[in-house]
Simulated scan of single mutants.
Amino acid sequence: MNFPNLKKLTLFHTSISEDVLHALLSGCHALESLYMAQVSAAGRLRVSSPTLRTIIFSHSSSEMAQLVILDAPRLVRLLLPYYYGSDRVTIRVARAPMLEILGPFIAAVSNILLFQGISPVGSANSMRTVKVLALRSSADKLHAVLNILRWFPCLERLHVTFGKHHDMDQQNEPQHDPLHPIECLETHLKKVVFKPFEGYGKQVDFARFFVLNAKVLDKIEFEAYNHYGIEMVGYEHKLLQVENRASRHARFVFKTISS
């Protein structure tokens, strides 16, 4: 197979072997975008391409799936739409030195996203190239999100999509240690987006943490469903009226979204 001019490739509901996928990508000498949805393989889905800039991987079936980015020197975006989370999916990134945009994936099962040699901030292997990160999380999983942020010391934009909240469902998880600051909160994170923001206690506490600790924050954006729009003004004041804000010039923006 040889497609020297092909720039976009979509594989949808496809069963393909590891070797055939490797041969297919090797024959696409100008490929820039690869979209894989419901693709099954007997082995791993290995991706190596000197030209790819975008990979979109969607998987929500009960089958095991493993995506391995072996070598993608120009990859900028690794997008994971419609992923609902399970231990059946593993994504490994061995080499993607230009990766800037990543997600969304679920914070509570972050082991599905494994970077070769990744370790907390302070390691030369942390993902310093990633500038934009999207996560799905319940509002009571702040510490899980913070632990993930340690992987991305140069993060500039964080998008958090809240799932259903279960205030009584508290699990033991590693707590944030203020004696070991999170680098992106200290020096890089400029924008945070929360959606859908309903303003209940756990969500307010989640957002307030960033108000208090993100030192170079320019903007926090709250996206609420239409029927919460009137109540947002009250939540805005509640969030702004905190002492010792790390970034006193951060703006709060409230937007409505369709339910």
Rank of each mutant, 00 (worst) to 15 (best):
Q170K: 13
R245C: 10
E32R: 13
L67D: 06
I230Y: 12
L135P: 04
A207E: 02
I112L: 12
F3M: 13
K8D: 08
L52C: 09
S33V: 14
E243D: 15
V47E: 09
L31F: 08
W151P: 00
H166L: 10
N213F: 04
P81M: 10
V204D: 04
G234D: 11
L9R: 08
I112V: 14
T161K: 08
K164P: 03
R157G: 00
A246W: 02
P73R: 09
F206N: 03
S86C: 13
R248G: 12
L75Q: 05
P104F: 02
D19L: 04
K190Q: 15
R53E: 15
E231C: 04
K202N: 06
M64D: 10
G229C: 05
A214H: 03
I182H: 02
M127Y: 03
I91Q: 06
I220E: 03
N172P: 01
P4E: 08
K195S: 13
N213Y: 06
F254T: 14
L113Q: 01
L79Y: 12
P50I: 06
N111S: 15
I69T: 05
S60I: 03
R74C: 11
E231P: 00
T10Q: 09
V192E: 03
S137W: 01
R88G: 07
H237Q: 13
L9V: 07
G27T: 06
L239N: 07
L189M: 07
V132R: 11
V121M: 02
Y83N: 15
T129Y: 03
T90R: 15
E173C: 04
H249I: 07
S49F: 07
F105W: 05
T51M: 07
H237M: 08
F12C: 10
V242T: 11
Y225F: 15
V211L: 13
V253L: 13
